[in-house]
Structure formats: C-alpha cells, structure tokens
Simulated scan of single mutants.
Amino acid sequence: MGAAATALEETRKLPQTIVMYPMTVASQVAQLVMKVQQDVADLVNKGDETLDQLFPSKDEQPEWATFDEDLDDGDGDSMDAGAPHDGERLTEGRFALYSTGEPAGYEDEPAPTATTTATPGVVADLGYESLTLAQLRARLPQLKVPELEALLAYEESTRARAPFQTLLANRITRATAK
C-alpha cells in the first residue's frame, strides 16, 4: 500500500518536476563547467610551480622597465627622455589622440594674426584651438562639409598637425561620399 501511495504522490508532482527539469539541467551544466575551469586553473598553477622549481626566475629588472617606486628617488634621470615630465602631455604616437597636438614650446610662439589667415566662424564656435583630437572627433558628425573644409584649411594654414589634418580630410571624404 505504501508503494502505491508514494507512486501516486510522485505522479501528482510530475508536472511541476517537468517544468523545473530544464532549470535543474542548466544549473548542473553550469556547475560542471565551473568545476572544470577550477580544475584547469589548479593544473596551470601546479605547472607554473613545477616550472619555477626547474627554471628559477631571475629577479632582475629589465633596463627598459620603469616603476613608480623608481621615480621617487629624486635623481630625475630615471625617466626616459620621451616620457612626460611634470604633467607634460605627450603629443605623438598613441597619446596624440588625447592631446592638442602642440609641439613642445608652442605656447611661447605668438598666435597667428588675422593678417596671416582669416579665422572661420566655425573655429570660434567649436573652440577649435583648445580641442584635443578625441574632442574634435566627437564633434565632427554635427558639422557640414563646408565647415569641415574651413577647419581643414585653417589647420593647414596655422598649426598643420598631421593627426588633425588626417581626421578632417577623412571626414570630408566620408561626408561627400554619402
């Protein structure tokens, strides 16, 4: 009699069990994947430990490596000549995107006068003189082709910064192709 009662109870629970079955399977699969990842990580750690025992690593610092702790010694010679000093912004290479592209000492040069070039209105409207390359890129979609051409002509007649010229020329090309 007890077996029949148990069979009846399990039969009544069957619809709920069937609904929950996919979730149970998904949970078990996720648990299995995590377990496999942990086992692989353990094997990698054991392999690293074994390799360290067989081939001990050298604690020498490469000559090209510079760490913040090394810069605090006050000698001033630990930084590379190409690295920024005292918060100076890098204007070449991968850092040019976040710079105004002004060469060192540009602040000391006089600003271009109105007699050398006429300043287009879009330059003043955008605050172009103080924009970084990334800021200019963000503002380009709202500009029309004549404004882009005016900016390019202005850039060529004043600072002639290659990244800015390339960005403007490429945007003009894309805008006129549409």
Rank of each mutant, 00 (worst) to 15 (best):
Q37L: 09
G74T: 03
I172V: 15
I18Y: 04
V145I: 14
G82V: 01
G82M: 05
G76P: 02
D68N: 06
Q165A: 11
R89N: 04
P15H: 04
P15D: 07
R139F: 02
R94E: 08
Y154D: 05
S27F: 02
T132N: 05
V123Y: 04
T17W: 05
A111H: 08
L51P: 01
T117S: 08
T11F: 14
A5E: 12
D125L: 11
G47P: 00
A111S: 13
V40D: 02
H85R: 12
Q135I: 02
E147N: 08
H85S: 03
G87I: 00
G127T: 07
E107T: 03
S78A: 11
A104N: 06
G2N: 14
V19Q: 10
A138T: 13
Q38F: 03
D59N: 11
L151H: 07
D42V: 06
M20N: 13
P163C: 06
R94M: 07
S99E: 03
E156R: 15
M20C: 03
H85C: 00
I172L: 09
E9Q: 12
Y98K: 02
V25W: 00
K13W: 07
F95C: 04
L143N: 06
R139L: 15
L136Q: 08
A118K: 13
W64Q: 06
P62M: 06
K35H: 08
G101S: 08
T24M: 13
F67V: 08
G127L: 07
Y21N: 10
A65M: 12
D48P: 00
T66R: 15
D77H: 10
D80W: 02
A114F: 03
M1G: 13
F55P: 00
F164H: 10
G74W: 02
P84W: 00
D42L: 11
A7I: 11
A104V: 10
Q165P: 00
S27I: 01
L8F: 12
G101E: 06
S78F: 02
F164G: 01
E69M: 08
Y21H: 11
T17I: 12
E155H: 06
E109K: 13
G74C: 05
Q28K: 13
E88Y: 01
Q37S: 12
P141E: 10
V40Y: 11
P163F: 05
E156I: 07
T173K: 13
Q61P: 00
A118E: 13
T66I: 15
I172Q: 09
D39R: 12
T17C: 02
E102A: 12
T173S: 15
A160N: 15
Y21C: 07
L152V: 02
Y21F: 15
E69Q: 08
V25M: 06
A169Y: 03
S99K: 03
Q61H: 04
L51H: 03
R12G: 03
E88R: 05
E10L: 15
Y128P: 09
L14P: 01
L167Q: 14
V25S: 01
S27Q: 10
L152R: 14
A153R: 14
S99L: 03
Y154C: 05
E109N: 10
Q142S: 14
L168N: 08
L126E: 09
L136R: 06
I172Y: 09
W64I: 07
A150E: 15
R174Y: 06
P22L: 04
P163R: 04
E107F: 08
A150H: 07
A81H: 03
Q135N: 04
T117L: 15
A175N: 08
V122S: 07
Y106I: 01
F55A: 09
R159K: 14
A169S: 15
M79W: 00
A138V: 11
Q142W: 02
